[in-house]
Write a protein that binds this DNA or RNA. Structure first.
Length: 571
RNA sequence: GGCCCCAUCGUCUAGCCCGGUCCAGGACACCGGAUUUUCAGUCCGAGAACAGGGGUUCGAAUCCCCUUGGGGUCACCA
């Protein structure tokens, strides 16, 4: 039945995983999983310039982080095991490998030769200028450019002569110009292209390296890809690829061109180059702000160069994979008129290409955050704790144990990865361990924070529970409003601190009782002191429940902080 | 510019293929109210869209055509 479905995602190692690409990958993955098929990760690295290994890690990690596994592709050990990372890991598994295009040169050569002997492709010995000039002229005259094909019908002897002379050449595919290519796209429906309008494209460059369109077709064909699911910008490559498939005698895959992820407030493709523009979008700015709040505290700052276009950004800011996944799947796809929340299992069960929408959709940071909040709410306290601990540790609020081992592990990783800072801090976050006392204390704070936690890094905003009393700072404006300008606030605080000090207090309800008694005796409303109290104890104008906060800190620390506040107010 | 794609609330979308049940449904955001010592949350409520113009039809968001607008792509990049 449909158990033969094979889909692939073919990223090129760019050093980061694009959030839009991730959405495409998700759809590919979902389609394969839904049909019990095979999902393949293939590395488009015909470029060869870059350090493939280092540039690939963030991409593989993104898949790993979101829980999208692949059946064939580069070998990779889940990041809890990355400590043992070594270059040997960058081999591939699966029966249709290698899965790195840079390792498939012989295959391309072989397939190219089949095209050459049947004259479906030909060596073009003309200098590149000739082609460029022809095109420029055509453009000037406002007509369609078709190249001359001087070498298409050259005799074997002529060709051999050029070959012997060492004349550089490219290989062009001879477009069957009479052809009208009809693509039956799963998302777009029937799309027609007139091959008569297309110049013969280079498929192998001087030097013999294949170009994208050729390599892709060879790989898709030989890897028995049944469904090419990719972003819409590839739609115009499709007729060429379809013709190549035909010329090579492969079974034509089915195509599905899904809309790309658009930039906030527009319809343009989301691009890393336009980040400055995105910052002006209020909703998007929110995302940037999470980063600029959190990363410095984690010591990431510039080094990491993270932004919301990269999947890594979300991981490092403590987003939940479930929320990100949910947001991505709803971008261009829906099940019906009401279902909003999908776990990975739900998505696998329900996903279908038929329900993919045609128009580009902008990533909505607000909605992403709301999905985060939803899935965060589904977590147990223990799970929240595990998510928050690394952030607190990285920010220096709590201490992990096993520090030595961590340092050593890091050194090892550093050796392999070089200076990829972003990756380092990443691994660091995930190898930390904490003792039970620390865990218990933090758990109490997280419990008090409750729904105020949307992403894990939100815990850092509650630093009042982690800083020493003498190092706690006050919100400037809040201090002025609630203490300086509030008549008698300082005196009230002073008196209250005395009362608290002399009371028998064990928990939140005791604080509650004592403070209420205090205001009643003076004929005041609770509202007349609560703000000053909060400010003096936490330094903030808002936060967790007042008396819960006090319980977390304990009587002595509350009193000390109140005294400090009074000093500051008087001094 | 050529080729191709797209077009429902501010945003993500349902409805469109198989015209009437849609004076267009949901979610996020926003606004108002309730709850609360604050924030968040929760609950209740409000406002908010078929790009325009022609057809076809008894009847069109739904079918056809045109216009407009937006976007993608046009490399010896992927």
């Amino acid at each position: 039945m449909s158990s033969h479905v094979r889909t692939r995602f073919a990223p090129s190692p760019t050093g980061y995983m694009h959030i839009g690409g991730m959405r495409t990958a998700l759809f590919c993955w979902l389609f394969a999983r839904h049909h019990g098929g095979t999902f393949i990760l293939r590395i488009d690295d015909t470029d060869q310039q870059r350090n493939t290994e280092a540039a690939l890690i963030p991409i593989l990690r993104a898949f790993d982080w979101l829980g999208l596994n692949w059946d064939e592709g580069p070998e990779y050990h889940s990041y809890s095991q990355t400590i043992n990372l070594s270059l040997q890991q960058f081999i591939s598994y699966g029966d249709y490998g290698p899965y790195y295009q840079s390792q498939r040169k012989e295959i391309y050569d072989r397939e190219l030769n089949r095209l050459l002997v049947t004259r479906k492709a030909y060596r073009d010995f003309d200098p590149p200028e000739k082609f460029a000039e022809g095109r420029a002229l055509a453009e000037k005259e406002k007509r369609v450019f078709l190249n001359e094909r001087t070498w298409l019908d050259a005799s074997d002897a002529e060709i051999q002569k050029q070959l012997d002379a060492g004349t550089p050449y490219v290989v062009r595919f001879a477009i069957p110009r009479e052809h009208t290519v009809v693509i039956n796209d799963h998302v777009r429906g029937e799309v027609k292209f007139d091959a008569g309008l297309m110049a013969d494209p280079v498929i192998v460059r001087t030097g013999g390296m294949p170009l994208y369109n050729f390599a892709t077709v060879v790989d898709d064909g030989l890897m028995k890809i049944t469904h090419v699911i990719r972003a819409e910008e590839h739609l115009s490559n499709t007729p060429l690829q379809a013709m190549l498939h035909e010329a090579l005698g492969y079974k034509m895959p089915e195509f599905a061109h899904i809309p790309f992820v658009a930039a906030p407030g527009g319809k343009e493709k989301l691009s890393k180059r336009k980040l400055d523009q995105y910052k002006k979008n209020p909703a998007f700015a929110k995302l940037f702000n999470i980063g600029s709040d959190v990363f410095p505290k984690l010591g990431l700052e510039q080094a990491a160069g993270l932004d919301p276009v990269m999947v890594e950004f979300y991981e490092k800011s403590g987003f939940l994979p479930a929320g990100v996944l949910n947001a991505l799947v709803r971008l261009g796809w829906s099940l019906d008129d009401k279902t909003e929340h999908f776990s990975l299992e739900d998505m696998i069960r329900e996903f279908s290409l038929e329900r993919v929408i045609k128009a580009a959709a902008g990533l909505d940071p607000e909605k992403l955050l709301s999905y985060e909040a939803y899935w965060m709410g589904k977590l147990t306290l223990e799970e929240k704790l595990d998510g928050c601990l690394p952030f607190l540790a990285k920010a220096g609020y709590i201490k992990p144990f096993d520090d030595d081992v961590t340092g050593q592990e890091l050194a090892e990783i550093n050796q392999v990865i070089g200076d990829s800072q972003a990756f380092l801090s990443d691994v660091f976050l995930n190898v930390l361990r904490f003792d039970d006392v620390t865990r218990l204390e933090v758990a109490k704070v997280i419990e008090a924070i409750g729904d105020r936690l949307t992403v894990f890094s939100d815990v850092l905003r509650f630093d009042e529970f982690f800083v020493a009393d003498d190092e706690m700072t006050w919100d400037e404006k809040g201090f002025e409003k609630r203490i300086t300008k509030a008549e008698g606030a300082a005196d009230l605080l002073f008196d209250l601190s005395g009362v608290i000090l002399n009371s028998d207090i064990a928990g939140a309800s005791d604080f509650d009782r004592v403070v209420h008694q205090f205001v009643e005796q003076r004929g005041l409303q609770i509202g007349q002191i609560i703000h000053a109290l909060r400010l003096s104890v936490t330094g903030k104008t808002s936060g967790v429940g007042m008396f819960e906060a006090m319980e977390l800190l304990g009587k002595e620390r509350c009193v000390r902080r109140m005294e400090r506040t009074v000093e500051k107010a008087k001094g």
